[in-house]
Write a protein that binds this DNA or RNA. Sequence first.
DNA 1: TTGACATATTATTAAATTATAATATACTAA
DNA 2: TTAGTATATTATAATTTAATAATATGTCAA
Lengths: 103, 103
Amino acid sequence: MKEQLSKKAEQVSLVLKQLAHPDRLMVLCCLLDGEKTVNELVGYANASQSWVSQFLSKMKLSGLVDSQKKGVFVYYRIAEPRLKAIMTAIYKAYCVAGVRSER
Amino acid sequence: MKEQLSKKAEQVSLVLKQLAHPDRLMVLCCLLDGEKTVNELVGYANASQSWVSQFLSKMKLSGLVDSQKKGVFVYYRIAEPRLKAIMTAIYKAYCVAGVRSER
DNA sequence: TTGACATATTATTAAATTATAATATACTAA
DNA sequence: TTAGTATATTATAATTTAATAATATGTCAA
């Protein structure tokens, strides 16, 4: 039981490491809204094209996002429902105004 | 609006950085269950007393947990409801068996 | 086939984090 | 007051991660 939890913890920590950065959070927050091209994401995060591309490529490698090419554009979206769940929880906790934090 | 989000992102990333580590997740997961002494937490994470103490002290500094001394023991608990919310989401997503991930 | 734009890759230096050890403090019971 | 246990602090070397620049690839339209 504890063994299992510690394996999960390993897995979750790999996901959280990818999120634990302001610009990366901005990108993911943006993806939470639906699929976006690389350039659209560059606009949201204050980061370079190269940086965003790198980040997305890592996220894709680990299966957290996937992408679809349409002509010149590459559309990225969140592929892992558990990532979506975590991002949604974060968004609700920190970005939805007027929600009283219950004890 | 975007300005605000990016400030939030900064704030959230500081929280996530504290979580993004297997042993730290174990500790927090354990605290999700209720308050615990340092030694109890040392038992759950496979980490040294010194390490757990250090971690808790940082978390306390940033207001994510707080502690209460009872005799020789120091009881720690999650102080920030938003941390509790995120941890709960993570726990549900990764540790609750049998939950179908909805699309 | 060339120019313009969208995306991807690679390399390198700077900076932050991790793991660990050693040691200190504080409380309690005897 | 001393021994034993619980917790906290400090320091440092090793490892990761971050930031950035330079450049490459691929697609499309003219």
